[in-house]
Simulated assay, not measured.
Amino acid sequence: MGAFRIDTGARTDTGRVRAHNEDSYCARGDIGLWAVADGMGGHESGDWASATTIAALEAVPAAAFDTLIESVSDAIYGANAKIFAESQKRGSQMGTTVVALAMLGDRFGIFWAGDSRAYLLREGQLVQLTVDHTQVQMMLDRGLIKPEEAAVHPMRHVLARAIGVDGGMEIDAFVDEVVPGDIFLLCSDGLTGVVDDHEIEDVMRGGGSSRIADQLVSMTLDRGAPDNVTVCVVGVTADELALGGEASR
């Protein structure tokens, strides 16, 4: 398969209501790793939890795909242990969501815990790659409520899983193949709480990772942005100029 050219756009904003930004992100096109984390537990605790998780991912070294996937998983579990130990020490719960994309050559991996999401636009169609780890999603999966009820349920932001909340926490992950033209979106729920999937799809169809990131954050701010908002957009195109099948990042 031919080499790829990777185009990244990432933006974060405190929003219109919150006093502090508890979101963090990394965009490491040099090794093929991107992530968004949304902290919980109050300003100091939420900031620290999300920053600790992103710092662990920032420390992941460049490697072949299989090793990269293993290192990303180890970094997230390591962050979970560190945050959980600190919360026990402080006597107060803290945690963070995380969603991460690792991509090298023609393969990608998605990792997540919580309700920060990963989407993929492929051939003009938007697909949500992650399933929210929330109490409401669990009720929806069990058929206890309908989708239209889930969208407005008062507990829709109550997490069933997050980094740092449980020493035995497990992340969800999967691996798949990249197709030229793919556009990935990682985001905190500050975006999806006010911009629906159809609108996200329309924006992403216009292409240009930086333009997409700018427009999605602008739409959120225009609608009052009651939460911090963070987006990381990764576009993939065939690199006709690359030689030897080596990815350009």
Rank of each mutant, 00 (worst) to 15 (best):
Q128H: 06
T97H: 05
F184C: 12
L144E: 15
A247Q: 03
P180S: 14
M94F: 02
V98M: 11
D202A: 09
P61V: 13
E22K: 10
A160C: 07
T130P: 10
D182I: 14
V195M: 06
D47C: 13
E148D: 08
V231S: 14
A102Q: 06
T52G: 06
G46A: 03
A56R: 00
G124V: 02
S188H: 01
L216I: 12
L221A: 02
G9P: 07
F4N: 08
D176S: 15
G114T: 07
G91I: 10
H133A: 03
H20F: 14
T52S: 14
W48A: 07
I83C: 07
V175S: 06
S210V: 14
W48D: 01
L101F: 04
Q88H: 05
R211I: 12
A238Q: 07
G244H: 02
D106I: 15
V229W: 05
D182W: 07
D30E: 14
A62C: 11
Y119N: 04
E86C: 04
M103K: 10
V175T: 13
W48F: 05
V175A: 05
D182F: 13
D47E: 15
A85K: 01
Y77S: 06
D7K: 13
S116W: 00
N228K: 01
A242V: 05
R249L: 15
S92K: 15
L120N: 04
M138R: 04
V99N: 05
A162P: 03
A63W: 03
D38A: 02
G190Y: 01
S210L: 13
R107C: 11
I110H: 01
A173C: 08
A49V: 06
M155N: 09
E58C: 12
A59G: 06
V17P: 07
E199S: 08
E70L: 14
L33S: 09
D141A: 12
F184Q: 11
V17W: 02
D30R: 00
R16L: 13
T130R: 00
A85I: 03
V217T: 15
R90K: 15
N21G: 12
L186W: 00
Q88W: 03
I171S: 08
L243G: 08
L241C: 06
G208H: 02
M155F: 14
G167H: 12
I200P: 12
D23C: 04
A56N: 00
D13F: 02
Q125V: 15
A238M: 08
S209Q: 08
D38R: 00
T97Q: 08
S209N: 08
T192N: 05
A10M: 12
L129D: 04
Q88S: 05
V195K: 01
